[in-house]
Design a protein around this nucleic acid. Structure first.
Lengths: 141, 141
DNA sequence: CTAGTTGCAAAGAGTTTGCATGGCG
DNA sequence: CGCCATGCAAACTCTTTGCAACTAG
């Protein structure tokens, strides 16, 4: 009984979008940037299609959706098929850099939250906000 | 030369809004809930006014603005002068509830991140996403 | 041929702004 | 009385949906 796999065609647009996202590596893009990019490329991809693919890709965990604090346009970031699934992410509020953190202590948190607080943390969505080393040292505000 | 204090009157609406937010303590409210609340109270406060006050209060750090992951309506929470500054927050992606977590283990994270990874975490902004106990038990997906 | 996909335009949802009126000091 | 605050309605921004045409398998 093959429950999932609701049948999915591979289309030109799909490939273009995924390829572009993958080409960006760690960096994040807004929907607006994507729309503009494909417009300039005259790729012929409607923004509705972009929204729809982003939604699917995010649901499958291939990209990640961030909602910035200003609540405006969302940001998406390529995560790939397995990279970035196992570690947490930190983002610097000063310089905006995204830091990938593999750390045993943090891994224990996952278990602790589940056992002690009944909370199943979602590593894909959780992002720590703060200030990175680079931004801390120069000017200690 | 009195630089700041750009002249601010104290109005009925201002007081009502701040008092209500303060009365909620830790819990968070959406703009929609605020609007509805004052409507039911027949308080005569337009939603424009609510938006404007929330903006000012957030700018002054008296309340905190959260943007949930769905990017829809923002949530505001009274912070007052110190409450909620010391613990972390978890939010359930299923039911949307906000959980306040005072936990020693998590507190060690702050120090660990700083010492080992040079990252100064901002507890005010960091929110853990996941699934809460209530939503985990019923249907284990 | 069938079912998923596309994309335009229109609808929605949440938030902001223009502007005339009202209220604090 | 001067200036900020208020609030209605309209404008805006970002996102989703309706629907007819299109296309992969």
């Amino acid at each position: 009984m093959k429950t999932r796999r609701p049948a999915s065609y591979s289309t030109r647009q799909q490939k273009l979008i995924l390829d572009y996202l993958a080409s960006l590596g760690d960096s994040h893009v807004t929907v607006f940037q994507l729309v503009r990019h494909f417009e300039q490329e005259a790729a012929g991809i409607g923004q509705t299609t972009i929204y729809r693919h982003l939604e699917k890709l995010a649901a499958r965990g291939i990209i990640r959706k961030y909602v910035l604090n200003d609540g405006k346009s969302a940001c998406y970031q390529y995560v790939g098929n397995d990279v970035c699934r196992e570690h947490f992410h930190l983002t610097c509020e000063q310089c905006g850099s995204l830091i990938h953190l593999d750390c045993e202590l943090l891994d224990t948190i996952q278990g602790h939250l589940l056992r002690e607080h009944g909370f199943q943390i979602n590593k894909l969505k959780t992002v720590f906000y703060g200030t990175c080393g680079k931004c801390l040292s120069p000017y200690t505000r």
